[in-house]
Write a protein that binds this DNA or RNA. Structure first.
Length: 769
DNA sequence: CAGTGAGCGAGCTTCCGCTTGACTT
């Protein structure tokens, strides 16, 4: 017999709480939800007023069995799942599955994992809130209906195995729309003028910028000519105080953003590192939307600040959550013990911890005090004026510890200290420079900035940001890529000693690092969904249904009625689209083939995006070519499309065999006697000639020779080879690692066989879950 | 790894939100 069984969601939480409570409490975790809709068919009985069909998930059978036994033995069962919609549903499912009797079951909640909070919770139990549970059921059923009706439609109309859902489809839409915005963007050029002036007495430098931009070089030059004859006068000096305040403590989304910006972590990397810190008891829960800090945390942060920096640096703050859908079941993400400035662990764990520590402590520190200075400098012979901005830090405050990063890369220099100047001071110029600039389109999303956007729209939850980002990449709707930029010529004009010098410079632009690009299939699926399911693809869809869930939670609406109102028109549209719409291949006509006059079109084929010359109905079979990596159906030109048919090219004969050149999955290659040789970066497959190709073939043969370390006459299937990762044994088309302690060239056949025998059997690759 | 682009049809794919491991290179 046990007196009390407490059930929480997370095992790490269970461990902590067990310590607070006495011996008469056994604390266990449910590991999140224990039941879900059946996966077969819909898992929803539509005919029967949307009755959900719940089953215990396969991976939860063991937990449920254990909990059931403990619950049977316990006098009182305390269900302490989180105080939000999902948590309430977990509580209800537990009550059902564990067959808990009402009189011995109590529902309790707490937001902080402190002894006081938990003891208080135990004195104030309540019963399960059926309305909140119903709101969750509505959420769950809606997502299942949308996902499991739209996905099969995509299998039929676009390609098998695709998926659609309330969250993922909108995430893809954001990326598709941004890409199109960038494609349609045309950069405008302008000239920015900046000057370095000299103060009259000390001759100190004053950097200033012209208030006006010129849109062509002629006007710019005319202005510089005026400058060469102008008198420069300080027209005004304006000083005003400024302040900066610290950012609130981390929640899931902001942690993901800052870890990406400051540490270069991917969203899923951040979450798994945070998970380890959490499991080691070093930080609080990492999936949260609340910026709230417990009283205890504020107190320890305060004493840490006082002892490390002094009283002056302390400013206790209460932050409030501003994001819309926030459910605030947890605290902000913070160190469990703020007195621990650093922790043991991997370097990634240490760096993430340090980031969390700084952000948490900085949030309770004073504002930084600044003095901002603006000096206006007028020209004697022109309307335009220069402005010099200065910023002096009077008191650093929280900046001592932590500065939040931004996504925008700015090329503006940070304002610094300006020399003392007063009105009517005369300045002379040292140098005035005009640099050609281009306007830039909106930036592509990174994983982290996409999370930020989703959160702003109230779409998705802290526990799903990382999985959503993975899903849209796994489905091949979106690719995370680093792409080299292009170069362009820019012009600069420099005025020095009364002379204007013009210079051309090359500049890189448009390079992208780990950014999200939509694929052709992503765009086709997006356009299909937008055409037929505008409502679900609307950025406000989630926010609108959330309002309805809220009213269900308040007991003002019936969940089945709400679902029914949504489902009827939705399902009709699915049926109608299934029957009437064409297969969606994203087909687009590019133009005419100049040689044959036949139409040239791009579309998604069985093996991905391709170009087709001619119609299927033609007598002659159409020609096909796959798009190359980096090309997109959206942006490919007729010329680029026709180029794809110039390969493979025949270069001529070598050693009585034909040499051809083409582009394959791994780039351009030369083919000869069924052997393939990659071209180097300098070679162009469209222009390469036989001589160079033969040279490459010879080089490859030389490399092959060095590749073979040892062969055995007795066993031709076995070879010792030199590979990319060092020497290895290949046998019957399987490869085996050679232990570091052995010298590969000295291995005997027997020794090789031994290594092969000892090698662990590779299990077949796990299927994507 | 370096192609393919027809068609039949069985059987499978798929959602979002709660939680952790169990798996590789």
């Amino acid at each position: 017999m046990i007196e009390n069984l407490v059930i929480v969601e997370s095992p790490a939480k269970a461990k902590t709480i067990e310590k607070f409570l006495g011996k008469e409490f056994v604390v266990k975790s449910s590991f999140g939800h224990v039941r879900d809709l059946a996966k077969k068919n819909l898992g929803i009985d539509i005919e029967n007023n949307f009755r959900p069909e719940y089953i215990v998930s396969a991976d939860k059978k063991k937990v449920v069995k254990e909990l059931k036994e403990l619950a049977r033995k316990a006098e009182t069962v305390w269900i302490a799942s989180d105080e939000d919609r999902e948590g309430e549903a977990i509580a209800w499912h537990l009550q059902e599955v564990l067959e808990l009797k009402k009189e011995k079951t109590r529902r309790i909640v707490f937001h902080e994992i402190t002894k006081e909070a938990i003891l208080h919770a135990i004195t104030t139990p309540r019963s399960i809130d059926a309305n909140l549970v119903n709101a969750q059921q509505a959420r769950r059923v809606l997502d299942r209906l949308v996902g499991f009706e739209l996905s099969p439609l995509l299998w039929k109309k676009v390609k098998p195995s695709l998926s659609a859902g309330r969250v993922q489809s909108v995430a893809v839409k954001l990326i598709v729309e941004r890409e199109r915005e960038i494609n349609q963007f045309s950069a405008k050029t302008y000239f920015r003028v900046s000057a370095v002036f000299k103060t009259p007495k000390e001759g100190r430098d004053v950097k200033a910028e012209l208030s006006k931009r010129f849109d062509n070089e002629k006007d710019t030059e005319a202005f510089l000519r005026k400058c060469s004859e102008a008198q420069f006068t300080v027209q005004s000096v304006e000083k005003r105080p400024g302040k900066k305040s610290p950012a609130p403590p981390f929640i899931t989304s902001t942690l993901q953003q800052e870890a990406s910006r400051k540490l270069g972590f991917s969203v899923s990397q951040t979450m798994s590192i945070a998970q380890r810190l959490y499991e080691s008891g070093l930080i609080t829960y990492m999936r949260t939307d609340s910026v709230n800090l417990s009283g205890l945390a504020i107190a320890t942060a305060s004493s840490e600040i006082k002892s490390s920096f002094g009283e002056k640096y302390l400013k206790v703050r209460k932050f409030t959550t501003k994001s819309k859908g926030a459910q605030e079941a947890h605290e902000a993400i913070r160190p469990t013990y703020i007195s621990n400035r650093s922790v043991n662990g991997s370097s990634q764990e240490q760096r993430l911890y340090e980031l969390i520590w700084k952000r948490t402590v900085a949030s309770q520190m004073s504002d930084a005090q600044l003095e901002k200075t603006t000096i206006r400098i007028d020209l004697s012979n022109a309307e335009e004026h220069f402005v010099a901005n200065g910023e002096v830090l009077i008191f650093d405050g929280f900046l001592k510890l932590y500065i939040e990063s931004t996504d925008e890369e700015t090329d503006e220099e940070a304002a610094g200290l300006l020399p003392p100047l007063k009105q009517n001071d005369q300045l002379s110029y040292k140098m005035i420079e005009a640099v050609q600039k281009f306007t830039a389109p909106a930036a592509r999303y990174t994983e982290a900035s996409l999370v930020k956007k989703l959160e702003e729209l109230g779409i998705g939850r802290p526990s799903t940001y990382a999985p959503t980002i993975s899903t849209i990449q796994n489905r091949n709707y979106v690719l995370k890529e680093t792409r080299a930029g292009q170069t362009r010529q820019i012009s600069t004009l420099v005025l020095e000693d009364g002379k204007i010098k013009q210079q051309e410079r090359t500049e890189n632009f448009g390079q992208e690092k780990q950014k999200l690009f939509p694929t052709d299939i992503g765009m086709v699926v997006n356009d299909f969904l937008e055409q037929y399911f505008e409502e679900i693809m609307n950025y406000n869809f989630t926010a609108d249904v959330e309002k309805k869930f809220d009213s269900i939670a308040m007991g003002k609406a019936d969940w089945q009625e709400m679902i029914s109102n949504f489902y009827k028109p939705f399902h009709n549209k699915v049926e109608e689209t299934s029957e009437t719409s064409e297969r969606s291949k994203g087909e687009k006509l590019l133009g005419e083939d100049p040689k044959t006059g036949k139409p040239v079109a791009v579309k998604i084929g069985r093996f991905g995006p391709m170009v087709q010359i001619g119609d299927a109905e033609d007598e002659e079979k159409p020609l096909f070519a796959s798009l190359l990596k980096g090309q997109s159906m959206e942006t490919i030109t007729l010329e680029e499309a026709l180029d794809l048919f110039k390969l493979p090219r025949k270069l001529g004969q070598f050693e009585d065999a034909e040499v051809t050149v083409a582009i394959g999955r791994f780039g351009p290659y030369v083919r000869h006697q069924n052997k393939f040789v990659s071209l180097s970066k300098e070679d162009d497959p469209y222009t390469i000639e036989l001589e160079r190709a033969v040279e490459l073939i010879h080089a490859k043969r030389e490399e092959e020779k060095n590749r073979i370390i040892k062969t055995f006459d007795e066993e031709p299937e076995l070879q010792i080879l030199n590979g990319r990762y060092g020497p290895y044994i290949t046998y019957n088309k399987k490869n085996f690692r050679i232990p570091k302690s052995r010298k590969p060239e000295e291995l005997t056949l027997e020794a090789c066989m031994e290594i092969i025998k000892k090698a662990p059997d590779k299990p077949s690759r796990r299927k994507k879950s």
